[in-house]
Simulated assay, not measured.
Amino acid sequence: MGYGLLGTLIMSIIMLIGTGTGISPLPEPVPLAIAKGLLGSLAKPVLMLFAVITHFGYGALWGAVLFNWVKADGTIWHGLGWGVMLWLIMELIVLPLLGWGIFGSAITPKIAIATLVLHVIYGGTLGWGLNRMKSSQVNQ
């Protein structure tokens, strides 16, 4: 779970920098868009808090699921594949539910690339963590 939280933190920082600087093709961070869709027009601080808590919980949960699936045999490739799988779920299910279209096509296809990069960072962090755990177990 810890590496899932770390991966979520890194991808969130990059997402917020991209959004804040205007580099990101996303109209807003996906967790915030989901919070708005679920909670409606609550005050922005409430929506942000909900978005942050659920995004980090989601990242930690999927990190734990991956760890339990691969256990001590995890590699960076497992993590990268996991990140791509989660990206596909977002692109094919979540973004259409937000009205952004498959792969963000209702807004811009650049969303698909930007979110892929973020999910590869998340998955790479998970895989690195799994590999690090495996290496520390071998050295004991």
Rank of each mutant, 00 (worst) to 15 (best):
L42P: 03
W62D: 05
I34G: 00
L9Q: 06
G7E: 14
L47S: 00
P31Y: 11
P25C: 05
L6T: 12
G7I: 05
G57T: 08
G7H: 02
L39N: 04
I17P: 12
S12F: 07
T8K: 05
G40H: 05
Y58Q: 09
L39I: 07
I13T: 13
T8S: 15
T19S: 13
A35Q: 04
G57R: 00
G22Y: 09
P45S: 02
S12K: 06
I53R: 00
A51H: 08
L38I: 14
K36S: 00
T19L: 12
G37K: 07
M15F: 01
A35K: 01
S12Y: 06
A33N: 01
S24C: 09
I17F: 11
I13V: 15
A51T: 09
A60Q: 11
G22C: 10
V30M: 03
L42F: 11
G18L: 05
L26G: 00
L49F: 15
P31A: 02
G57M: 01
G59D: 07
T21K: 12
T54C: 12
S41D: 15
H55A: 13
I14G: 04
I34L: 11
F56S: 04
L42T: 05
Y58F: 13
L61W: 15
G63D: 10
Y58L: 14
W62M: 14
F50M: 05
I17V: 15
M15P: 01
G18R: 05
G7N: 06
P45T: 03
L38M: 15
G59K: 08
L49I: 14
L47R: 00
L9N: 06
F50G: 02
P25N: 03
S24K: 10
G40N: 07
L42E: 08
G37F: 04
G7A: 04
G20L: 06
A43H: 15
I53G: 00
V52Q: 08
P25H: 04
S24R: 08
G40F: 08
P25T: 00
L9A: 14
A60C: 12
A64N: 11
K44P: 03
P25M: 02
L61D: 11
L49A: 15
G18W: 05
A43S: 14
A60L: 11
L39M: 13
V46D: 01
M48T: 14
M48E: 14
L9Y: 09
A35T: 06
A43L: 12
A35W: 01
M11K: 13
I34D: 01
E28Y: 01
L42R: 12
P27T: 04
G37E: 02
K44S: 12
L32C: 01
G57P: 01
G20K: 07
T54Q: 10
L32A: 07
A60S: 13
L6R: 08
A51D: 02
I23N: 10
V52D: 04
I17W: 11
I23F: 14
G59E: 06
M15L: 11
A43K: 13
G57N: 09
L6M: 12
L16C: 12
L6I: 14
Y58G: 04
A35C: 04
L26Q: 11
A51V: 09
V30E: 00
I14L: 14
S41T: 12
G40Q: 06
P25I: 02
F56H: 09
L47M: 00
P45Q: 02
G18S: 11
G59A: 10
I23W: 15
G37R: 04
I10A: 08
L32P: 01
A60E: 07
P45N: 07
S12L: 10
L32T: 07
L38G: 10
L16K: 15
I34P: 03
